[in-house]
Design a protein around this nucleic acid. Sequence first.
DNA 1: CTACTACATTAGATATATTCTAAAATTTCC
DNA 2: GGAAATTTTAGAATATATCTAATGTAGTAG
Lengths: 141, 141
Amino acid sequence: MDTEAIRRSLEDRGLRCTTQRYAVMAFLIDHKGHPTAAEIFKAVNRVDPRSSRATTYNNLRDLVKAGLVREVAVEGRAGRFDATGMRHHHFVCDRCGNVEDIDWYDVPKPASRSLGKRVVRDCQLIFRGLCTKCAVRRTSH
Amino acid sequence: MDTEAIRRSLEDRGLRCTTQRYAVMAFLIDHKGHPTAAEIFKAVNRVDPRSSRATTYNNLRDLVKAGLVREVAVEGRAGRFDATGMRHHHFVCDRCGNVEDIDWYDVPKPASRSLGKRVVRDCQLIFRGLCTKCAVRRTSH
DNA sequence: CTACTACATTAGATATATTCTAAAATTTCC
DNA sequence: GGAAATTTTAGAATATATCTAATGTAGTAG
């Protein structure tokens, strides 16, 4: 995705395209590995514009609110982020904490009477267990 | 659920029924409100047996591993726990962080070729948005 | 261009959440 | 009763996320 497209996607949602915000968004589009906030912070600072920890967290929150980024919370560990480009579900490894994509498929919505007056913004399907690497390591000892 | 039933459910899964572990389990069975580890720690200490923070976390981890308890990770906040008695899905409020139950319904499993060699232990369907309380507060201003 | 306003960023302190440590206590089993 | 395994403990340490208040920057209207 090119610079202009990213800028537009930010501005379309009412977010200014600042250097730091752009860097976070661009990094997430380029890196499909579900990085943590700390990893994103380090990565965008390795390149150029110094960005503070707070800014990284602020921007991640703004991007999530705008629907451009999604967070996957992981128990006892740092949350992980990805750009909401293509729809997919997630798999979280119990052992190493890695988050991986699972091909998307349709999930039925709950009956509206069981939702009541709640307003649903998002729906996540998360599988847990052992990732390929950890499953192999497990059985081989 | 009576004392003996809880004791048995622990021992069936190879967990000793210690005072502290029993207290955590009993509390979760009695309190369907998805408490955090800190809340559980406080609650079981309010009653009687002094239990340390570490023990509470250890026991929660053991109970999750044994499948008797489930954790719902919430972004940027403490994880929340519930006893895996009746199956249900979850709704997490963006605003107040509360976790609520959604009536259970069947969710299709992913194609086995998209899982590969991964070992699935659990599958969680989590909805996000505004809970009834927060939705009302939102629209009324 | 200037100044105004709203929005963003900063470094570091603070708050919150969770795990670790090593010693002591408890339980199980023989 | 005693050995071995498991569990608990208090507090320190670590990890994660947010807050603060001063400063900077972008968009806009004059």
